[in-house]
């Protein structure tokens, strides 16, 4: 930019008004991020950006443009991870326009005004870069968390010799249920367990899809020669299942995990009594 007729005014303005613009920029941004990032940190960031903007606006410095975009991307990523909102992040960039415009107005320089329009749309482009990086960083955060959640939330525990337990907590969706199903079936093979208790006490709601997944898990387990009991069926969930018209067929369901364990023990021919077995 800035190679119009004659010498451009904006680069000069950026240079001479450096302190004022930078201070004003800092002020506007600080207002938005209130306390979640220190003034010193922010000042260091903006000073670096400002220097790059100066170089880019002066023209003839391709490298500065690239560095500027890279620096903005880095800032957007860290803002996204720190939990700043998209507008708080974008304001960091857009605020430079306001700060500079105040300088331009003060000089009442028509050519600087004209150049400012070009500068403004250039900053808008930078804003888009910021936003895109922000969005993809957030998506990455979400994807990472989902994966962690999947791993964390599907433990298969041993309740007794030959009896596995799967305590399900949280919302069941298709992907998660598939993971649960596969993990459980693999553990049945590994351990040679005959029984699995799927406990849904911690599942807030059961819809048709979740119920179908549970049914499929039990059917697959049966095909492998094992059996499943579903426990933790709260009255509310029982009502939903009936209302949805889902057939659980001959699959055993129990109100509590304890009931399910007792049932599994009984089916395995194990008796738990107060006296020792003679």
């Amino acid at each position: 930019m800035s190679d119009g007729a004659g010498k451009a005014h904006l680069p000069e303005l950026l240079r001479s008004g450096r302190e004022a613009v930078l201070d004003r920029w800092l002020e506007v941004v600080l207002e938005g991020v209130r306390g979640r990032i220190t003034e010193r940190e922010l000042k260091a960031e903006l000073t670096e950006l400002y220097a790059l903007i100066e170089r880019a606006v002066a023209g003839g410095d391709e490298e500065a443009g690239r560095e500027l975009r890279a620096a903005l991307a880095e800032i957007s990523r860290s803002r996204a991870r720190q939990g700043f909102s998209p507008s708080e992040t974008a304001v960091s960039v857009f605020a430079v326009k306001q700060a500079l415009l105040e300088q331009v107005s003060a000089t009442a320089d028509m050519q600087a005004y004209a150049e400012f329009i070009e500068f403004s749309s250039w900053v808008d482009d930078l804003g888009l870069v910021t936003f895109e990086t922000y969005a993809s960083a957030r998506e990455q955060v979400i994807a990472d968390q989902m994966e962690q959640l999947l791993e964390l939330s599907t433990p298969v525990v041993k309740l007794w010799d030959g009896i596995l337990g799967v305590p399900l907590v949280g919302t069941l969706d298709s992907a998660r249920t598939q993971v649960v199903m596969e993990t459980l079936l693999e553990r049945l093979v590994e351990t040679g367990a005959q029984f699995a208790v799927i406990d849904i006490t911690g599942v807030p709601a059961v819809d048709t899809e979740v119920a179908q997944h549970l049914l499929k898990t039990v059917m697959a387990a049966r095909l492998m020669g094992t059996d499943c009991v579903i426990s933790g069926v709260r009255p509310q969930i029982a009502q939903t299942i009936v209302a949805l018209g889902i057939e659980f067929g001959d699959i055993a369901t129990k109100a509590s995990l304890a009931d399910a364990l007792a049932y599994a023990l009984e089916c395995s021919g194990i008796q738990v009594t107060g006296r020792t077995e003679a």
Partner: peptide, 28 residues
């Protein structure tokens, strides 16, 4: 029957009614 095979059979809509199953040869 392997887990992946069992899951696929259920998805396919085959329940093998009337066929008894066991985890391994010994249990069979």
């Amino acid at each position: 029957m392997r887990p992946a095979v069992a899951i696929t059979l259920v998805e396919l809509g085959l329940s093998l009614g009337g066929v008894r199953t066991a985890l391994d040869l010994e249990k069979g």
